[in-house]
């Protein structure tokens, strides 16, 4: 037979009450906690630990700094290559235009000579 809702509520309250009954801490717990905290503080403040932290920090800074410098160097190289390509493109353009100019000048000279011959 199933319990009525009110009975179920009472049973739950009873369980809760039992679970929340104040119990004394195991003997020596406070002492153990205090000792563990003292040990931790002692190790954090030791010169060895400070040096290790500083070394780790420096290493991290060196790695990050090196990475940034390397990336900048790579970027500069790519930029320089792109710049060189621009200059190459302009030189080829210039050479082509130079040739065009020479051909046009030759053409004009020929036209001039023909004109002179005609007027004679």
């Amino acid at each position: 037979m199933s319990l009525e809702p009110m009975d179920r509520m009472d049973e739950f309250e009873q369980q809760l009450r039992t679970a929340l009954v104040r119990q004394a801490a195991p003997e020596g717990l406070k002492q153990r906690i205090l000792e563990a905290r003292a040990r931790r503080r002692a190790s954090v403040g030791s010169p060895q630990s400070v040096w290790m932290r500083m070394a780790a920090g420096l290493l991290l800074a060196a790695v990050v700094g090196g990475g940034v410098l390397w990336k900048r160097h790579q970027e500069e190289q790519r930029g320089e290559a792109a710049r060189e390509q621009v200059i190459t493109a302009l030189r080829v353009t210039n050479r082509a235009l130079d040739n065009v100019e020479i051909k046009l000048a030759a053409h004009d000279t020929r036209d001039g000579e023909q004109e002179q011959r005609r007027t004679r």
Partner: peptide, 26 residues
């Protein structure tokens, strides 16, 4: 063979900082 797209030209322009005499004009 030179292929310079708009983005490549922009990138190259960033490195034309005037250290060389023809940088500004290019």
């Amino acid at each position: 063979e030179v292929t310079l797209t708009k983005s490549m030209l922009g990138f190259a322009a960033k490195f034309m900082d005037g250290k060389r005499h023809d940088d500004a004009a290019v």
